[in-house]
Design a protein around this nucleic acid. Structure first.
Length: 675
RNA sequence: GGCGUGGUAGCUCAGGUGGUAAGAGCGUCGGAUUCAUAACCCGGAGGCCGAGGGUUCGACUCCCUCCCACGCUACCA
């Protein structure tokens, strides 16, 4: 076993608040693991922070007129605060705008550059002459070459989902100035993943104990062959490239963000008053480095970042990357833009953190996507936290209070049931430990709850309410044993329920902070004064969760109403419109393109000629259903080759809010102009 | 289309190098009990382990094909 552990959680992007999906993916499991290990007395730190770079933050500036710095400042503080309140116990929560982070990531770039790792490539990119800058993908809009949507982004068309490159856009427009950008050559540094693939491949294959979903995803990438990846880009928001002649270039966010783990650790060390101490966590072979992330982050943490570290040298490589899948909400995918999410800040206004820590912990998407529902939240709290755990503790302590004046009885001539119940403590502890060690947190939590179940069973079977009258010794034994189980639970459940277990420890008169090794069969000495205390877990009524569900539905609906109508475009002059030649056409044939999952190949009769037009409508129509339909066609669009077939024109479609497409149909004769 | 992960009781999910493992919790039905937050405890019902083939003495567990979900990826107007 390693001497120490460094846990990192994916740096949350500082352009929005934290929701349940974030917690389930990375932060909660990371926190459970860290707290568990720490309870075991191991040397472990948990590092995280805000990722403040990247294009989306600068786009928000365009949309809301807010400076990027304002946005990241706001969300950095908000997220840091809500994590703390929720009990995600980071040793340090840094941010990638810090000076030290800039220096650290620049040092990485320089070192790799000096070692000749990077390759430089020249490429053509769109340039806004008025703003005097190259335009990132998201800074360009234009007509989608696939579906004709006029507000496609440079990297992707949100209508048809095609991934694009900015130079493909028809009539590209700069988001900054509205001008038509020019194509200009630029030069960038690339990490030659293609060349380095064998190294990363053999490293990955040498990993043990990795989850199937993580290994599978890595192999999938490797099988396809890695593409070289640009490390720099033309942008001003980010870490400047530390070289002469690289003005207005910054490090690509995928490169600098994971380095944020290192810079945050450095800052942590400084805070601890020992500025070299970060090295023991990053550069000592006795450290195991564990990255907690969601599945969307696998490639960065399993391929690119390890490679970066490898090439820099001196650094430890991740021992495991226990990535989680995604959390659904009420059976639907989370969508922040559609308002289908539960924000942690909102949750904290209504409930205690431990409740969600438990419920989310029991439904972490460890092996496949999982589902969170408010109904389930209620059930778990009522029938597990309240009925099993809370009730066991309360019946034990209140019984002791009532019939033994709150004094823990002695264990005298214990019977078989007493001994085997005590023995369960050690067994449960072993099972729970193993589950945590294997990153099986759901199982660890279930096993912990099982100890409370065991307690209830034992308590019921030994019937102290009867022995109280005819066999006080046996009655005392029951309470002694039950109290030891409570005490064990107060430690074993601490990773999940830190606040509640602290309360329990107080009731049990456990003044000093006990750890995992202290979990034994004699944690509480006879004659200790224990209190019944308050009920630890109150039940949640139906109307409370109904209200949450209602809130969720409202927020998703209200957002949908706002989004229902795409905003009207700018006034267009008539000539612009008149340049388009729209015609009525008849679909005379339609065939499936097996290699494409969107396109149908249509033969369209325009009267004066017959054309082949490709349309991305496979999902909505089957070929046989549309033959014979009259449709409206853009007849003078420049031809475009897709799937090796030239498409001559475009079939107009109306798209509903949910993406459903309909033909623009007419009864006019074939070939008639439309205007 | 390619690749990856998953498709197990009404619900949420475990499991498995092929053979006395088809499992848990919740829900449901019945019983017992009263210390306790109408809680706890015991018992029953409920699954051709996504579909179809194949290998095998034997497959939920291996192979092939297909369907569905999620993700990644692709020249998709």
């Amino acid at each position: 076993m390693s001497k120490r552990t460094l846990v990192t959680s994916a740096l949350p992007y500082a352009n929005g608040p934290i929701h349940l999906g974030h917690l389930a993916g990375a932060y909660l499991p990371a926190d459970l693991y860290t707290r568990y290990k720490r309870l075991r007395g191991e040397d472990i730190i948990h590092i995280c922070g805000s990722d403040e770079h990247g294009v989306p933050i600068t786009i928000a500036e365009e949309k809301k007129g807010v400076k990027p710095q304002q946005i990241v400042d706001e969300f950095h503080e908000r997220n840091k605060k809500v994590f703390r309140e929720f009990g995600i116990d980071f040793d340090y929560y840094g941010r990638t705008s810090s000076k030290l982070h800039h220096e650290t990531s620049q040092d990485f770039f320089k070192k790799l550059n000096e070692k000749g790792i990077f390759v430089k490539k020249k490429e053509k990119q769109l340039f806004d002459q008025e703003a005097n800058m190259f335009l990132p993908d998201r800074y360009v809009t234009g007509t989608c070459p696939v579906c004709g949507h006029e507000e496609a982004y440079g990297d992707q068309c949100e209508k048809c989902g095609s991934s694009l490159s900015p130079v493909e856009l028809i009539k590209p427009k700069s988001v900054l100035t509205g001008n038509t950008p020019v194509t200009k050559e630029t030069e960038h540094w690339y990490l030659p993943l293609g060349k380095l693939q064998p190294e990363i491949e053999s490293w990955i294959e040498s990993r043990v104990g990795w989850k199937a979903n993580v290994l599978g995803q890595c192999r999938s990438w490797l099988k396809e062959g890695l593409n070289d990846r640009a490390v720099t880009r033309d942008l001003t928001w980010g870490v400047p490239v530390p070289l002469e002649g690289a003005e207005n270039k910054v490090l690509y966010v995928w490169f600098d963000a994971p380095i944020g783990y290192i810079s945050a650790t450095k800052e942590w060390a400084i805070e601890k008053g020992d500025k070299e101490r970060w090295k023991t966590y990053w550069q000592d072979d006795e450290t195991s480095l564990i990255h907690f992330i969601g599945k969307d982050n696998i490639v960065f943490h399993c391929i690119m970042f390890p490679l970066t570290l490898m090439k820099y040298g001196e650094f430890v490589l991740p021992e495991n990357v226990p990535a989680n899948e995604f959390l659904n909400l009420e059976g639907r995918k989370l969508s922040t833009s559609k308002g289908w999410a539960v924000w942690l800040e909102d949750y904290m206004e209504s409930f205690e953190p431990d409740l969600l820590r438990y419920v989310l912990g029991t439904t972490l998407p460890e092996t496949k996507d999982s589902d969170f529902s408010w109904k389930d939240f209620q059930t778990r709290i009522n029938s597990e936290l309240a009925d099993i755990l809370g009730n066991f503790i309360f019946r034990t302590l209140s019984f002791t209070d009532k019939y033994f004046n709150g004094m823990v009885p002695e264990l005298l001539n214990p019977g078989e049931k007493d001994l085997s119940a005590l023995n369960e403590i050690a067994q449960a502890k072993a099972r729970i430990s193993e589950s945590y060690d294997r990153f099986r947190f759901r199982e660890a939590i279930a096993e912990t709850m099982n100890l409370a179940r065991t307690g209830n069973k034992y308590f019921t079977e030994t019937e102290p309410w009867k022995t109280r009258k005819d066999n006080v010794e046996a009655c005392g034994n029951t309470l002694y044993v039950s109290i030891q189980i409570c005490a064990a639970l107060s430690v074993l459940f601490r990773p999940v329920l830190p606040n509640k277990m602290k309360e329990l420890a107080t009731s049990l008169n456990l003044t000093e902070e006990l750890n995992w090794n202290d979990v034994t069969t004699k944690m509480i000495k006879p004659e200790t004064d224990v209190k019944a205390g308050n009920i630890l877990f109150a039940k949640i009524e139906d109307d409370v969760v109904d209200a949450e569900l209602e809130k969720l539905k409202e927020s998703s609906e209200s957002d949908e109403i706002e989004k229902k109508y795409t905003p009207l475009k700018k006034t267009a002059d008539y000539n612009n419109f008149a340049n388009l030649d729209l015609r009525v056409g008849l679909i005379t044939n339609a065939e499936d393109l097996p290699d494409s999952n969107k396109l149908l190949k249509l033969t369209i009769d325009l009267g004066f000629e017959t054309r082949t037009i490709l349309a991305g409508i496979k999902n909505v129509y089957s070929p046989k259903d549309i033959i014979g339909r009259k449709v409206c066609v853009v007849a003078n669009l420049e031809p475009k080759k897709m799937m090796g077939i030239e498409s001559n024109g475009m079939v107009l479609m109306a798209e509903e809010d949910d993406g459903k497409l309909h033909f623009m149909t007419t009864e006019a004769d074939i070939g008639s102009p439309v205007f």
